[in-house]
Design a protein around this nucleic acid. Structure first.
Lengths: 331, 331
DNA sequence: AAATAAATATGAACCGGTTCATTTTTTGTT
DNA sequence: AACAAAAAATGAACCGGTTCATATTTATTT
């Protein structure tokens, strides 16, 4: 493998000149530039980036911690991150943590050992087992929840849930069921608070029996629908904390002869692509996933380059998308 | 940031000893080992892995090129790759190429510039625009198709398709529709050949009108079902080239009053998790995704460590899973 | 043509680990 | 106690880039 010294020898110049020719060609004479290009081509020289990064003491790499890569929402956030990172010459290392703290720590270690310059965390912050934030590690929390310390980007989950449930109430619904995520998931907690706020604003009592815990996956939405179906005092509308469970629930209700939106209304969360196509099309909260990724990357890169962003917490606008899946309750 | 020289000074020893203490502690005296550990702790020393890798001239990293990370099947393959890589001390860099050749080339460049040692390619090989294989880059093709050059891991797509379609024929089906992937997708071509082989073995003429091209996504399965529904001579069974389109098709047919499996049989491909839960449960070809990942990683690491694997092409066993979605045609 | 200023080119030193030939210390033997 | 063998420690050199104080070449001015 050819080194910069080989190129220097071939071109009859010094290593310093070769280096400059690559980083600031306008500061090298035309004549020599041509010689250098010829030499590089002849030797098929490729700069050793490990050496470069070692010398620069910076890996120009950021780690993105993802709880689960096979997830549309995360994929969009990542896409936004990569856009910004690439523009600034950074590469993105995806850390699929599969919800394991051990794996998460591995990636944090990469920052400690200079393999990466900073971290964007897509896993919602939870006090008990939080590995981040740490003051020796530059990190930004994307898709975070209320109360996340340090730099974070999120939507107003409480407000969004309140708005969605409030809309159901304004249509005349009084018994509104919830398909929630895992009990201690922070997003879950925020959204449940929004649900409660909407109820109390309408002076409707909160009934914990109407909240069925799922796990954000299809199967759990199906199960929840079955449970709701067999209630003697069944709700007339459902607020599901993600689209996947909502779509499953539509299916589950239909199997029990309950059709949406005539017999039951439902609202999801996330605005997955398929939510525009399913039958009925799904009303949902649209999160600006790609924008959230972009903003977090901008924040982290600012931190890495040494400047201090003005604000710690960035709250991006969500959108409440009304589609076919909701209607007033039957009289 | 403390360096190994700082630790050496603090412990009153030489850098060589510190280095050995970290890589082969059994070759350092107990007394000094303790001193060193104390010094490391006191200075909060973390070896600079960039320096390490630079010196070792190896990044101990492999790149996995994925056409689309938000995909269950790929996620499983990746999971298998990571298992093997982690065991051997390699890290895995996910390259979400989003089907862009430019992005793919970027990742190849990482190998050229020593940022990675090799590549596992999950994108099926296609002659026209193939970036890999290249003889200066160690690479393995996972989930490949027939005719992929160089090292590759795959199932027998032709045989699997033939078996599935053959089973439908043995149940008495004569008009068998296909929901295919994109026309020039290599997996598509293999599976279509299997379909034709099964037909010709049963002396059934191939009718191109029965093949509707999808794009492996939900929406296209729904559309295909509508098209099949409106045919005057509708098929009695469908072979779908992945589960996602198959599940969408079940839905699409049901909306037209065609119920599975009484009115129509269907077989998918991939064995997604949800295929075990949907109604009816879906018959499908199960690919050993995780195993395919493991095998490819083993292959690549062998290549990286310098040995030559015996075989170039590894064909792993698939499984034909029979569930509720198929039945003999109506009389 | 000489003096000065501006533009280029030089090359040793450096980054922070690892390696290995050499030296020093410890252990074992008689 | 003397010597040999084994174990442990040493530290300079190295990896392949970049940097920067210094030297050289080229361009401009008088």
């Amino acid at each position: 493998m050819a080194t910069i010294r080989d190129v220097a020898k071939e071109a009859g110049l010094s290593t310093g000149t070769i280096s400059k020719a690559l980083s600031a060609p306008e500061r090298v004479s035309k004549k020599n530039l041509e010689k250098i290009q010829a030499a590089i081509k002849k030797l098929n020289y490729k700069p050793n980036m490990l050496a470069q990064k070692f010398r620069a003491k910076s890996s120009k790499t950021i780690v993105v911690l993802v709880p689960d890569i096979a997830n549309q929402f995360f994929a969009s956030v990542i896409s936004g991150i990569e856009l910004v990172a690439q523009n600034k010459g950074y590469s993105v290392l995806l850390g699929d943590t599969r919800d394991s703290a051990a794996r998460e720590r591995e990636f944090v270690r990469m920052v400690e050992t200079k393999l990466a310059d900073g971290i964007i965390n897509l896993r919602p912050y939870k006090k008990q087992d939080a590995i981040l934030p740490r003051d020796d590690i530059l990190a930004v929390s994307a898709s975070s929840c209320e109360g996340t310390p340090s730099y974070s980007v999120r939507i107003d989950n409480v407000g969004a849930a309140k708005k969605a449930v409030g809309h159901l109430i304004s249509l005349g619904h009084k018994r509104i069921g919830v398909i929630s995520g895992l009990k201690d998931n922070p997003h879950n907690i925020d959204r449940l608070n929004g649900y409660k706020a909407a109820l109390s604003a309408a002076k409707i009592d909160y009934d914990p029996k109407l909240v069925i815990a799922g796990d954000f996956n299809y199967w759990s939405g199906l199960t929840a629908a079955e449970q709701f179906s067999s209630m003697k005092q069944r709700p007339t509308a459902i607020f599901s904390m993600n689209d996947e469970m909502a779509i499953a629930a539509i299916r589950g209700f239909k199997d029990k002869g309950i059709n949406m939106p005539q017999d039951m209304s439902i609202i999801g969360f996330d605005d997955m692509e398929v939510s525009r196509y399913c039958i009925p099309t799904l009303s949902t909260i649209s999160q600006p996933a790609e924008k959230m990724g972009q903003k977090s990357a901008e924040l982290l890169l600012q931190l890495i380059e040494g400047s201090k962003p003005e604000t710690e917490e960035y709250i991006l606008p969500y959108e409440f998308v009304i589609r076919e899946s909701i209607a007033p309750p039957k009289a």
